[in-house]
């Protein structure tokens, strides 16, 4: 009986692939997220740089404000098939460990965010930063990876809480954005520290460390509470 049960890793892979395959076939979430990110950048440009002001000093802030809002959109969409097509009911009757449901969801959100960042980071650099060096983009990529960890872990947990709520589309941003403020502060600080020729690596390291700590803390919170999320 036990021998027939797939390993923890194989179950995780199956769940993650299910989400990614579904997204690749429908492209419901990803296209909307990328377009939203581009539109949000335009809004920032016309709201703050309409008179030709140089926005390079706030480019990190623009990038992370855009990504935080885009993350809310992606996280909100991430549980939709589970609810609308009753996938969750099916998953809950299988003997899949409950932590895998959260981890696979976090993995999918991580992948969506990464896909958006592949477009958004170069765009912000082109639109707002003067004199960006290619090496800096790698450092900003590391910030994206660290920030995505925290955003996806917390996002998958909070999206679960909003799943069965009334007015969930409104509830999720209200729940998610205040907890996301530390990520926005640290990630935009780290991005700004290596943008446009200002190479303040000590500040960059401090912010990256903070992003790591943030991911670990919310990882622990999610680990301690996941059983109670899927209790029924």
């Amino acid at each position: 009986m036990n021998a027939a049960r797939p390993s923890w890793f194989r179950q995780l892979r199956a769940l993650l692939l299910k989400d990614l395959r579904l997204e690749l076939r429908t492209r419901d979430t990803l296209v909307a997220m990328v377009l939203f990110a581009v539109v949000a950048m335009m809004i920032f440009q016309f709201a703050f740089g309409g008179r030709g002001q140089d926005l390079s000093a706030v480019s990190g802030g623009i990038l992370w404000a855009t990504l935080a809002l885009t993350a809310v959109l992606g996280v909100g969409r991430s549980w939709v098939p589970e609810r609308e097509q009753r996938v969750l009911d099916g998953l809950l009757v299988t003997p899949v460990p409950r932590d895998l449901l959260l981890i696979s969801r976090a993995g999918a959100i991580f992948a969506y965010l990464l896909a958006v960042e592949v477009v958004a980071v170069p765009l912000v650099t082109i639109f707002f930063v003067r004199g960006q060096e290619p090496g800096d983009l790698l450092l900003i990529g590391l910030v994206c990876l660290l920030a995505n960890l925290g955003i996806s872990v917390l996002g998958s947990l909070l999206a679960c809480l909003a799943l069965f709520a009334r007015a969930r589309e409104l509830l999720l941003p209200v729940l998610f954005l205040p907890s996301l403020l530390p990520v926005v502060i640290a990630a935009s600080g780290a991005t700004q520290a290596v943008s446009g020729g200002t190479n303040d690596l000590a500040e960059y390291r401090g912010y990256c460390l903070f992003l790591g700590v943030y991911a670990v803390i919310f990882g622990l919170v999610a680990y301690a509470t996941y059983e109670h999320v899927f209790d029924d």
Binding site: L157, L158, L161, L175, S179, I217, V221, T225
Partner: peptide
């Protein structure tokens, strides 16, 4: 669950 997550924040 949220009270725990919020306090961690």
């Amino acid at each position: 669950i949220y009270s725990i997550a919020a306090f961690a924040s």
